[in-house]
């Protein structure tokens, strides 16, 4: 599904990713954890093709394709979805209209017929309920005046409608209270399937209580410093990231190997 080899990337000339390797198979949920500034968000932006994130070395293979050759909108149409840490407001553009334009652009790319507004509404109804999104939100402008929780739910709702093959959730838990967190996590869990891979980028372990990952990776200084199962996240929570820096990784490695 996704294979990243020796990825180096800079932002504004500053090296952020310094030889990152990652392999995600279909149906897997991977969590990327790490301290602030480790490059977690950069990874998501590089995969999505955001301008200003320059790949200086390495490769990203997605479904057998060289992902770095594709334009951002082509990557989206190929099934890559990024749930933004800070969803963007687009004043005056209706939320429903926006999402239908996105879905139809993707359908067109795949050679499928576009949906008219009736067909689209039907598709959307059921998914709205799962995420406890009110009709009212759909009639407002994209993310404009949404609360933090509404914005995050809207991201996961978009994911539910667009049905990506690879979803990257960038700090989706940030700014959510526990109820909102549960709703969002529930929305994500319902979308787990053997055809869909999910990368959960998070600073805290608590999201992983609800979305239990298959693999956990610790990102530090632009590289994967350690990988393990869900228990690695707990360990991190217990010890904190400073433990990592103080040679914890070696200790952990031995633990895992043992």
């Amino acid at each position: 599904m996704l294979e990243i080899r020796n990825l180096h990337a800079t932002v504004g000339g500053k090296p952020i990713l310094k030889g990152l390797d990652l392999k995600v198979d279909p149906g897997e949920v991977h969590a990327i954890m790490g301290p602030n500034g480790a490059g977690k968000s950069t990874l998501g932006n590089v995969i999505a093709g955001r301008e200003g994130y320059e790949v200086t070395a390495g490769e990203v293979i997605y479904n057998g394709k060289d992902l770095l050759e594709l334009e951002p909108e082509e990557r989206a149409c190929e099934g890559i979805f990024l749930a933004f840490q800070y969803p963007v407001e687009i004043p005056g553009v209706n939320n429903t209209y926006f999402l239908r334009a996105a879905l139809n652009a993707q359908r067109k790319y795949r050679g499928e017929p576009e949906l008219d507004s009736m067909q689209f509404l039907k598709l959307v109804r059921a998914k709205l309920e799962i995420l406890h999104i009110s009709d009212d939100l759909m009639h407002r402008a994209v993310n404009e005046g949404f609360s933090g929780g509404e914005k995050k739910r809207n991201e996961i709702f978009q994911m539910a409608v667009l049905e990506p093959r690879l979803a990257i959730l960038d700090e989706t838990d940030s700014g959510l209270d526990i109820d909102a967190l549960r709703i969002v996590a529930e929305g994500v869990n319902r979308q787990r399937s053997e055809k869909r891979s999910i990368i959960v980028v998070t600073h805290y372990q608590r999201l992983l209580d609800y979305i239990v990952p298959d693999r956990v990776h610790v990102l530090a200084d632009g590289k994967i410093a350690a990988s393990g199962g869900a228990e690695l996240a707990l360990k991190l929570e217990e010890q904190g990231y400073t433990w990592l820096e103080q040679g914890g990784i070696q200790a952990l490695d031995m633990e895992i190997r043992a």
């Binding site: 951002p72 334009a101 667009l162």
Partner: peptide, 26 residues
Amino acid sequence: GEDQLFYCLQRGIAEEDAVSMIVDGF
């Protein structure tokens, strides 16, 4: 905004359509 533009692109909407959508909203 580059961020508005990227948000649209990331959802699969082509650049040209994204610009007219944002301007229309404005």
